[in-house]
Amino acid sequence: MRSALWLLPLLGGCATLKPPERLDTMRLQPRFAAGAASVRPGGIIVTPVVATGMIAERRYVYVTAADPLLLRQAATLFWDVPPSASVGRAITDALRTRFAGMDGGPVVGRLAMRLVRFEEVTGGGGAQAVVEVEATFAGAAGQDGPVSGRYCRATPIVADGSDARAAAFQAGVAALALAVADDVAAGRLTASSC
Rank of each mutant, 00 (worst) to 15 (best):
M1T: 14
M1C: 13
A4H: 11
L5R: 12
L5C: 13
W6C: 01
L7T: 14
L8V: 14
P9F: 13
G12K: 07
G13R: 13
A15S: 12
K18C: 09
P19F: 03
P20R: 11
E21F: 14
D24R: 14
R27K: 13
Q29W: 05
P30L: 05
R31H: 15
F32H: 05
F32K: 04
A33H: 01
A34S: 11
A34R: 04
A34Y: 03
G35M: 11
A37H: 06
S38M: 04
G43S: 10
G43N: 12
G43F: 06
V46N: 03
P48T: 08
V49M: 06
V49A: 02
V50E: 15
V50N: 02
V50H: 02
A51I: 06
T52K: 09
G53F: 05
M54K: 10
M54C: 01
M54H: 02
A56S: 13
R58H: 02
R59A: 08
R59T: 14
V61K: 09
A65C: 04
D67R: 13
P68E: 12
P68Y: 00
P68M: 10
L69D: 10
L71N: 06
L71G: 04
R72D: 05
R72V: 04
R72K: 14
Q73Y: 04
A74F: 04
A75L: 11
A75W: 03
A75G: 14
T76H: 10
L77E: 13
P82E: 13
P82R: 11
P82T: 06
P82V: 14
P83S: 12
P83R: 07
S86I: 01
G88L: 08
I91G: 01
T92S: 12
T92D: 08
R96I: 05
R96A: 08
R98P: 13
F99R: 03
G101D: 06
G101F: 07
G101R: 06
M102F: 06
D103H: 12
D103Y: 09
G104D: 09
P106G: 11
V107G: 10
V107D: 07
R110S: 11
L111Y: 08
V116G: 05
R117I: 02
R117C: 10
F118D: 13
F118S: 12
E119R: 10
E119Q: 15
E119N: 15
E120Y: 05
V121Y: 03
T122W: 08
G124R: 02
G124F: 01
A127I: 07
A127R: 04
Q128C: 04
Q128T: 10
Q128V: 07
A129K: 06
V130I: 09
E132K: 07
V133D: 00
V133N: 03
A135E: 01
T136I: 05
G139Y: 02
G139H: 06
A140N: 07
G142F: 09
G145T: 15
G145H: 08
P146Q: 13
P146F: 00
V147Y: 08
V147F: 09
V147K: 07
Y151D: 02
Y151T: 13
C152W: 00
A154T: 11
V158Y: 01
V158T: 14
D160F: 03
D160V: 03
G161W: 08
S162G: 12
A168H: 01
G172R: 01
G172T: 01
G172Q: 02
A175V: 02
L176T: 00
A179R: 03
V180T: 02
D183M: 07
D183Q: 15
V184N: 01
A185R: 05
A186V: 14
R188E: 03
L189E: 00
T190V: 00
S192N: 11
